[in-house]
Every structure is written in C-alpha cells, then in structure tokens.
Design a protein around this nucleic acid. Sequence first.
DNA 1: CGGTCCCTTGATAAACATCAAATGCAGTGG
DNA 2: CCACTGCATTTGATGTTTATCAAGGGACCG
Lengths: 250, 250
Amino acid sequence: MVASLPEIETLPLYADMTAEERRELLAAGTVHSLAKGEQLFMHGEQLQCFYLLIDGVARQFRQTPEGKEITIGLAIRGDIIGTTHLFESVDTYQWSAVAVEPVTVLAYPVAGFRETLMTHRILALNLLAALSKQTHLAAIDAEHRVTLSAPQRIACFLLRLCALHHLDPRRFELPYSKTTIASKLGMEAETFSRSLKKLQAVGVEVEKAHLSIHDTHRLACFACGHCSIADDCATLSALNETTCSGSCSR
Amino acid sequence: MVASLPEIETLPLYADMTAEERRELLAAGTVHSLAKGEQLFMHGEQLQCFYLLIDGVARQFRQTPEGKEITIGLAIRGDIIGTTHLFESVDTYQWSAVAVEPVTVLAYPVAGFRETLMTHRILALNLLAALSKQTHLAAIDAEHRVTLSAPQRIACFLLRLCALHHLDPRRFELPYSKTTIASKLGMEAETFSRSLKKLQAVGVEVEKAHLSIHDTHRLACFACGHCSIADDCATLSALNETTCSGSCSR
DNA sequence: CGGTCCCTTGATAAACATCAAATGCAGTGG
DNA sequence: CCACTGCATTTGATGTTTATCAAGGGACCG
C-alpha cells in the first residue's frame, strides 16, 4: 500500500497545495485495503468516514425494498466516495458502497471535518470541483438513459472505459464483470449481452471478457451521433486520439 | 425586487454567517429579473455568472443534435444554478437555463470567485452542502426512472411539489405547464397525460391545471412502495404531515 | 462430482415512444 | 366582436425497446 502512497499527491484532491499542506492532509487519513466484495459502508449505517479511492473499483448502489439494486456509479482512482452525505442534514449513509475489485482507500473521519475544511481552504475548493464533476457526470448519464439506446450506451461506456483506464481499444479486457457494467448502465444483464452482440455490426469483437474495437472513430459516431456532449466529449476523444484521429462528422 | 431582498438572508447559502459577512456577500451580487421564457444562459456560451434563485422557477436542460430537449432539473427559491461549471476545466456553460415562470436571481460573476471562496470559508461550506444535495437528488431521480412507473413518478412528484411549494394537496394549481413537468420527469407529454388519468384510481382528481389529492397517504403508498428512500422521504412526509398523519405501512 | 455464479439465448409481455389528429384556450389583427 | 393562428393538451392506433421468465452452457471451487 505504502508503495503507492507517494503518487497520491498527484490526485486532483491535493492539487494546488504546498507540499507541506499535502503532507499534513495525507497524514490525517488512514489507508485501508478491501478485498473484492468487501463493503466500504452500507445504506443506513452511521456516517463515519468518507473515502478517497487510491486503487481498484468501488460500486455505489441503492437497494429497493424488493431487493433490486440500482448502481449509482463506479468509482476509480481519484474518485471520492461518501462526501455527498457529509454536508447533508443526515448522519447515516444514504447508499452503499462495495469493492468490485480489490480496493485501496484513504479514509477520512467525518467528525471535525468541517473544521479541517475551514483550515485547508484549497481542500474545500478541490472538493467543490470534485462534487461539481459528479453532478455534471450524473446529468450526462441521465441524458444518455433517455436519448441513447442500449447498444449506444454500451459503446459510449467502452470508449470512456478505454480512456479512463488507459486501455488499448484494439484489444483489452473488461476490468469488471459484465453484470456490474450492465447495472452501471441501468440495463439488465440480458439486454447487455444482446446489445453487445449488436455492436459487432460497428466493429466490436467480443470473446468472453476480451474486446477489440476495430475503429474507435466508427464506434464514436455510432454512439455519439445523438448526444449533446459533442464538445465536451472532445475531452474523451482527445484521450482516444492516440489511436484514432479525426472527430465525428457532425 | 428589493422588497424580497431582506429574506434572502434566510437562504441556506448564507446560513451560519455573521450578519456582516452576509451583507458583504449580498452586496457582491446583482439582482436580475427575467420574464417567462427568458434565458439565464445557453449551452456553449461563455461562462460569466452563476445564479442564486430568489423567486420563480428555472428549467435547466440539454439539447441533443436532433433538437430533443432533456430537462436536468427545475430550480426554485434557494437553488443555485450554474455552479457546476464553476469548478470544471471548462469556460463555457455545459447546459442551458430558462425561466419557466418569472424569475428573480442574484447573479455572481465567476471571475475571481475562487478568491471569494478563500475569504469566505463558510460560503464554501454552504456551497458544498448545496452541491451534495444536488448530487443526492440526482441519484434519487435516477433510481426513480429505473424503478418507478410513469404514474408512480408523477405521484412522487406531486407530493414533493406540494411540500416544496407549500401547496394544499386537497386543492392546488400546477405551478408550471404539464409539458414542463413531463420533461422534468423524463417522459413524453402524452405519457404524462395518460398516466395522470390513471392516478384517479388512487384518489387524484384532475381538471385542467387544478389538482386535488384526496388522500396523500394513499398516494404516498402507491408511489413510495417500491422506493428505497423510505427514511429519507420522511423529510417529505414530515412536510406533508400537516395534512396527513401516519407513514406508509412498509 | 455437485454446486454456484456468470453469461448467454429464446420466447413473451409490458411500458413507453411515436405518429396522427382533434380539441380547446389565448392572443392577434381586422 | 369575430375569424385566425399558435400552443398546450388530450386521445387513439401502432411500433419499438427493453424487462421478465425460463432454460442451458461453461468456469471455478470445494
């Protein structure tokens, strides 16, 4: 764990700080490691810590009375989990979080954290940035669920996946189970399976968990043709432009 | 406009401050009034101000290339609009906002706002609280779209509407058009119209824009039976308990 | 070897969108 | 005051998408 600690400094939460301030904040948190399947917190539990995810993947979800699970999001390195509850007038977690891959987190107790924020103003700004981003991504996700078909949402997800995890689109392995991805995209596993097959028509080869995107540009056109994020997704395209040049012809 | 200004102090954004600090912050913003249909900002425009909504209703939305509009949310008194973009690495608005009812806002220029936040630490905390709430509500909305049927989402919306706007459930008028509500709920106007009719079966009378909820408790059971927010919605129920006692039998 | 979990495939059904058309209301201009 | 126009709403008919139910294959594990 300690091996990866030095690089924590590069995470956005600690951006724009003096080395000293960073060191102090890092010292305030405690490192935890979780095996696949272990939970960070459960819905209804007493609020205790929020977490900075250093490595692995954590799934945040809600559960309906019937037992159906709705995935709120998949968090990866650099993402912050549990802060949403910090400033609400509640003292319990409003949803649950579990590791879907072995996870390393830096845990910060919520007790007295308001005071920490008063002292470390830049931290407050960085937290604001993180929450803004979350809100923005939530809005985009919501739009996708309304305007994009299941295959298109998958296509969008795959492109984003490659960008975020630095995977080679021409051949990569899904970093977590298809069931998990399906739930993150708000569809049933069956629909995911069937839709993935339809993507063969736009040049996506599937073999178990191994995928090959023959032409990222083509896939992007298929997925993003009906999406309003065009300019913003230039960010995503930029990341992909290592393997593919030119943007969608819109 | 000035008439309503004194009460601005009671908004959450200015909570926990000294009177002096509040006065200073209020002075930093400029009051704007917009007629129905006027826009606060448009997607792609240069980022200039963010807004604290003092009165009226503003709709935030995105537009797909085909011209379809996706409503992100309806903001009312106390809500903050445009902050999401403040901390992102973008300098344009990522979506649009228009007044669906005559609106009064307090506008704050984004230029130099980071510095303001450094000086006014409590403001930063209050902003964090506001953004947390937004994220939380977004998660709930997303869950509703997956787990609730159209009539149930409408029922949930109506109950919430009465609570937020302090309307008497036994007889009230919709504060904005049905088309607007439908789009906020992520459904077509036709579906909204048909679903609203189905609510007659659980005691909702409809006549033009006038609604009567005969039994809020019954409607809550119909809507919330499949929802995971039970405890949290106690907040909402609490507001409703002026007219209806007892909670859903779950 | 039996069990479990993940994934796939097929058949069916429900919910919702879409298309098309009618109604009614509000505002406009004559 | 009345025809005219535009917009919001409603209603009906139809189609598509996706969930649901059911069953089977394959990998991993004890």
